[in-house]
């Protein structure tokens, strides 16, 4: 067993490093509770262990041990469930809900990150087993982390759209962001507050793919949630008037976002919206299809 000790140890270390790296990247989606960190690091450790022992198991002809990888995949599906459930449970307590599409996306990311830990551990232990060279194994691990995290990196809103400040105006009681009607605000004092303290941005899609993506309700809810969680939102449970909203201009596909933030800073709002991830479940690519391409012009 001791001859495999180095192989397994390096595999585990690289796998856990991979998981740690992805936890660090996670500043926004992750509530960053110490318990959450512990849960995901422990699961990452288990994932890394499974990846690291696969190669020694194969070499000592313990083929059944490899089938545990399949079992592991099953287990890590549970992580997705766990994340989804816990985010759904706190959804009611959020002033601005994430929306189910965003939750699904976050849950998916957490599952995939454990596979990242498995694969990193597997590659680095394989290299160590074949070459007997620890630095090479570590380098492989780092390369695996970089390549895999690049592969799983999601696009951001700034990649698919142009974001610019927009004007808020009222047509009597109708709140509008430029030409997009957002809602009817009946209470006069609320109208005053929105006019004085509200901020609005316009998201203009770069092409028809982006337009289809932005029209997804889930994507828009994610934008609103992120903007509200980064800038704060001036509302409590009973202040329905100040719910941040993202509404679509059906003619052009532009999206107008309106928010009454705690910190009234348009630059930060634009930056926050730019960095919202494009949700996998909302991503549409009509232009890739023949029919979509035909319909473009």
């Amino acid at each position: 067993m001791s001859k495999y000790l180095a192989v397994v140890a390096v595999g585990i270390i690289m796998g856990v490093t991979a998981r740690l790296h992805m936890l660090r990247v996670d500043y926004r989606q992750y509530p960053s509770y110490p318990q959450g960190y512990l849960i995901h690091l422990s699961l990452g450790l288990i994932a890394a262990f499974l990846g690291a022992v696969a190669v020694p198991a194969l070499i000592s002809k313990e083929y059944t041990a490899v089938t545990f990888l399949a079992l592991a995949a099953q287990q890590f599906r549970e992580i997705r469930d766990m994340e989804r459930k816990s985010l759904e449970n706190i959804e009611d307590t959020e002033l601005v809900p994430r929306g189910s599409a965003y939750i699904e996306d976050i849950a998916k990311a957490f599952e995939s990150r454990n596979y990242l830990a498995i694969l990193t551990a597997l590659f680095s232990s394989l290299v160590l087993q074949l070459s007997d060279n620890i630095p090479a194994a570590i380098l492989t691990g780092i390369a695996a982390i970089i390549v895999l995290s690049m592969m799983t990196r999601r696009k951001k809103i700034k990649d698919i759209a142009v974001i610019r400040p927009a004007k808020i105006r009222f047509e009597n009681s109708l709140l509008c962001v430029e030409n997009i009607m957002v809602m009817n605000v009946g209470y006069p004092d609320s109208r005053k507050i929105i006019e004085e303290q509200g901020l609005a941005v316009m998201i203009e899609p770069k092409d028809d793919n982006a337009r289809a993506t932005l029209s997804s309700i889930g994507q828009r809810q994610a934008i609103v949630h992120d903007a509200a969680s980064l800038l704060g939102v001036k509302r409590d449970v009973t202040d329905v008037d100040f719910m941040p909203l993202a509404r679509l201009d059906i003619e052009t596909g532009r999206v107008g976002v309106i928010i009454v933030p705690m910190e009234r800073d348009i630059e930060s709002l634009i930056e926050a919206v730019k960095r919202v991830p494009v949700l996998e479940s909302s991503r549409r690519k009509p232009l890739e299809s023949f029919a979509g391409k035909q319909a473009e012009d």
Partner: peptide, 23 residues
């Protein structure tokens, strides 16, 4: 306006103006 404010707070609901004197 006062009734509208109270009711919206009590019911956690939103006031909409139909612009014919009715909220």
């Amino acid at each position: 306006d006062k009734i509208a404010l109270y009711l919206s707070k009590i019911l956690s609901a939103m006031v909409h103006d139909l612009e014919n004197g009715t909220y």
